[in-house]
């Protein structure tokens, strides 16, 4: 009887797939950071209702939420070269489309997508910081930028942390779509490896296990971070190094 499910193959495939884990991680980390910064910007635009920018951001967020990420990747992959052609045509430049690495398209799409979803989370978190603290900071003579950076963001971050953790997990799994733009990360590699021996199921099981493990790691990291940021914990640590005791 032939082997129906080759469990040993699964474990021998995992190290081969892990070679491409850095690509997955790179896509995740860069998109998350860009998504957070842009999301913060969108959140502030929405909160402050800055004319023109506000309307643009509303349409942008609605569009991103209303279209599948796969379609967004297609749009980006096909649209950016088109824009470049236009630019070359009207400015008589000769930028080469092929000089843009494929990863670029994925990063742009994932960052924009992440920004749209994060902006709502960040906005809610910013609004949850009570006005009294802002007023106290202002009454000391701080500028809005200082109040935001020193008072509002540190507290809003703690509020948003669990939700942002979920969004990081979603993003990490979302990078599996990168093959659309011919970027080889772990999912694409699992298909390539399966193509060699036609053992598709084993290959997919291997890649699934890697995603699962990564997700668990992220969850743990978030829980750890939450604990570190807990006020009673922070206070204990600060008091330890102190000579003055109660």
């Amino acid at each position: 009887m032939p082997t129906i499910f080759d469990i040993e193959l699964v474990f021998s495939l995992i190290p081969k797939l892990l070679k491409y884990l850095p690509v997955t991680l790179e896509l995740t980390v860069i998109s998350m950071i860009a998504g957070l910064l842009l999301g913060l910007l969108l959140a502030i635009i929405k909160m402050k209702k800055i004319p023109v920018l506000y309307q643009i951001s509303v349409v942008f967020i609605s569009f991103i939420r209303g279209t599948p990420i796969l379609v967004q990747l297609y749009l980006c992959y096909a649209g950016i070269p088109l824009l470049l052609k236009y630019y070359n045509y009207y400015h008589e430049t000769s930028y080469n489309v092929n000089s843009i690495p494929a990863v670029f398209y994925v990063l742009i799409t994932l960052s924009l997508n992440e920004a749209a979803y994060n902006s709502e989370v960040i906005r809610a978190a910013l609004l949850s910081v009570d006005k009294g603290q802002t007023e106290a900071a202002q009454s000391l003579g701080m500028t809005y930028g200082q109040v935001l950076r020193r008072i509002i963001l540190p507290e809003a971050f703690i509020v948003a942390l669990p939700t942002l953790g979920n969004s990081l997990i979603g993003l990490m799994k979302g990078t599996s779509l990168a093959f659309v733009c011919s970027v080889v990360e772990i999912t694409a590699q699992s298909r390539i490896l399966a193509g060699n021996n036609l053992r598709f199921f084993e290959s997919y099981v291997a890649v699934a296990l890697i995603y699962w493990a990564m997700t668990i790691l992220i969850e743990r990291a978030i829980v750890f971070l939450e604990k570190r940021l807990d006020i009673d914990f922070k206070s204990m640590r600060k008091r330890k190094g102190d000579v003055i005791l109660d």
């Binding site: 009294g132 603290q133 106290a136 009454s139 003579g141 008072i151 540190p154």
Partner: peptide, 22 residues
């Protein structure tokens, strides 16, 4: 506005301390 605020300091009814700071 900032200059005026630097010359005054306020104590609030609800204390309004920064929660994430000792």
């Amino acid at each position: 506005t900032l200059e005026l605020r630097k010359r005054t300091a306020m104590v609030f009814q609800q204390f309004n301390l920064f929660r994430q700071k000792t």
